[in-house]
C-alpha cells in the first residue's frame, strides 16, 4: 500500500530524513520508535504534505500513486490520515461542522454522494461509543480550549469518522491518562482491517501492549536502522536507544 524508498527531506535548511525506507502493506500495523529529534514527525509531515518540507531525493508511492505529487487534501481523499503530535486549535470553526465538511469534501473528490446531517449524526453517535468525547467538545471550536488529552482523543475520533486507508499516529499516546490510552487503542483496534494500514509513532511500550504491531522500526538520525517484530519494542524499553546505536557501530566496524 505504502512504499517509501530512499526518502531524503530537509526543513529550514537542515537535512532531517537521510535515506528512509519503509513498506507498509494493507492490514499491517507498523510502530516507529526513535529518539527525540530523529525525524519521526518530519516523516509524518512529509507524508501528509505539510508546507515547509523539501524532499531532496527518494519517492513515496501510495496505492500506485506518487503521493508526493498530491496536495494535502488530495492525500486525505486518497485515504491518508495523520493524527498530529500537536493538534491545532481553530477557535470559531465548530468541531462537528468541520468534521462533516471534511468527510463530505473527501466524498466529493472520490465522486461519492455527500452525507446528510441526519446520517452524519448517526455516524458520529456510533463512533462515540468506542471513543467517548463529552458532548460539549463536539460543539466547541476545533480543539479550542481542549486539554492535551482531549485533543489527542479528538484526533482519533476524526480518524474513526473518516475511516482512512492509512492512518499515521504521531505520539497520540503522549499525555494520555490510562483510560484515554485504552480508548485510543480501542479506537485503533476497531478500525483494524485487512484493507487498512497503520503507522504508529510512539516512545512507549504501553500503547503497543494494546495495539499489537506487526512490525517495529527504530528511526535514528533520519534512517530506519533496525526493524523487527514487537519483541523489538521490549528490547528497546529494556536497553534504550544507545543499545541500537552501539549495535550499529559494531555492525559498521565489522
Amino acid at each position: 500500500m505504502l512504499t517509501i524508498d530512499n526518502l531524503h527531506a530537509r526543513t529550514a535548511g537542515k537535512d532531517i530524513l537521510k535515506g528512509l525506507d519503509l513498506k507498509v502493506g494493507a492490514g499491517e500495523v507498523h510502530a516507529i520508535m526513535g529518539p527525540n529529534g530523529s525525524g519521526k514527525s518530519t516523516l509524518a509531515s512529509v507524508l501528509s504534505g505539510r508546507d515547509g518540507y523539501e524532499v531532496t531525493a527518494g519517492s513515496v508511492r501510495f496505492n500506485g500513486q506518487d503521493l508526493l505529487e498530491l496536495e494535502p487534501e488530495e492525500r486525505a481523499a486518497a485515504g491518508v490520515f495523520l493524527a498530529l503530535q500537536y493538534p491545532v486549535e481553530i477557535p470559531g470553526v465548530n468541531n462537528t461542522y468541520f468534521l462533516r465538511a471534511a468527510l463530505n469534501a473527501q466524498r466529493r473528490s472520490r465522486g461519492e454522494a455527500e452525507i446528510d446531517s441526519v446520517e452524519f449524526l448517526r455516524l458520529v453517535r456510533e463512533k462515540l461509543k468506542v471513543l467517548s468525547l463529552p458532548d460539549d467538545l463536539l460543539k466547541r471550536g476545533v480543539n479550542s480550549g481542549f486539554s492535551g488529552g482531549e485533543k489527542k482523543r479528538n484526533e482519533i475520533f476524526q480518524m474513526a469518522v473518516l475511516e482512512p486507508a492509512l492512518a499515521i499516529l504521531d505520539e497520540t499516546d503522549s499525555g494520555l491518562d490510562i483510560d484515554a490510552l485504552r480508548q485510543v487503542a480501542d479506537g485503533v483496534n476497531a478500525l483494524r482491517s485487512p484493507e487498512r494500514g497503520f503507522i504508529v509513532i510512539t516512545h512507549y511500550q504501553r500503547l503497543l501492549d494494546y495495539i499489537q504491531p506487526d512490525f517495529v522500526h527504530v528511526l535514528v538520525d533520519g534512517r530506519i536502522v533496525e526493524s523487527g517484530d514487537r519483541t523489538l519494542a521490549r528490547e528497546l524499553e529494556a536497553h534504550g536507544y544507545g543499545w541500537v546505536a552501539e549495535r550499529h557501530l559494531a555492525d559498521a566496524g565489522a
Partner: peptide
C-alpha cells in the same frame, strides 16, 4: 494545513 489534511480543499 490542519483543515486540508482532513480533506478540505484550499
Amino acid at each position: 494545513f490542519y483543515l486540508r489534511s482532513r480533506g478540505i480543499g484550499l
